[in-house]
Nucleic acid binder design. Structure first.
Lengths: 161, 161
DNA sequence: TATTGTTATACTCTATAACTATA
DNA sequence: TATAGTTATAGAGTATAACAATA
């Protein structure tokens, strides 16, 4: 199916086959994700955001007052790595770290007006980006795709330790 | 939909909502990919293979005689980064780098018997891994998923520069 | 004792620039 | 001049260990 021809002695192959990998869902996900990630980076660069900083900002906008450890868990990254992301968003005045009187170890995260506006504009750009890479899929296919991805995540989350 | 409740002054949110992100195909892909990647790493570790070394080996098995630059292009990684991967596979006697008489700059890559056997066993383990994370999807959903991912990759590949 | 945020550190994956030996 | 493979290096993204302050 992906095979075209093959090498004679000392000759390069004329077309590279990936027949062992081609029908693997994981392989297809990896390749699609590589392409989507590159397009997303282009999409977010006008806003000086990366995938991770946009996701963090969006979750803070949706959950005013959440703690850093909650955000780290939501983003599935470690607490130490979240620190630099929150630092960046705070330095740019997109979020605030408010001291919590009832627990003086913790910070409550809140988006600023500026952060909320940037998130809104970036989210619009992301919807255009989504329409771009989903352009050749109909509504049924889009729905099945999103649901299937969610099911896969839940399946692996349930099963393993 | 993902909203449960929200913070009073100084209280942590009780459940973290990702309502801005939840329905984005890119977000769902990223999260599913994170889970799949972790399960794949566990799946391949008995064979001392990582995702990238397995993929490289499989493509070499499928394309005896291909050049390093062809493999780098197939894996969508840079030539410098491929060097260390090929080094590792060669050191472990899974592949051979044969000098090409007709072009003394180039190497023709070929899997050894040992490499072919390891690839075969790892591929079986990967099929089990695929059945694991696809367990709750029926055949129609699996087919739609794989085809949709392929279409997305092609769509982005066509459009951009 | 346990938890929140932090620092220090390291490993993987990826890229670019510039080299060598050929073509 | 251009290409195949290589070296050196750097930047993301991720992780763990261990600390200070607080619970």
């Amino acid at each position: 199916m992906s095979q075209v021809s093959n090498a004679h002695d000392g000759e390069a192959v004329s077309a590279v086959s990936d027949k062992t990998l081609a029908d693997l869902a994981g392989y297809r996900m990896k390749r699609a994700m590589t392409a989507v990630r590159a397009d997303l980076a282009r999409t977010l660069s006008p806003y000086d955001l990366r995938m991770i900083t946009y996701s963090a900002l969006a979750i803070i906008v949706d959950n005013p007052g959440l703690r850093q450890f909650q955000l780290a868990a939501a983003l599935r990254i470690s607490r130490p790595n979240l620190v630099v992301i929150v630092d960046e968003l705070e330095t740019r005045d997109l979020i605030r770290r408010d001291k919590v009187p009832s627990d003086r170890r913790a910070y409550a995260l809140k988006a600023t007006i500026k952060g909320g506006r940037l998130c809104e504009r970036a989210t619009e750009a992301i919807h255009e980006h989504e329409n771009r890479f989903l352009a050749r899929l109909n509504n049924r296919e889009r729905k099945t795709l999103v649901t299937a991805l969610q099911t896969i995540e839940a399946t692996l989350g349930d099963g393993a330790s």
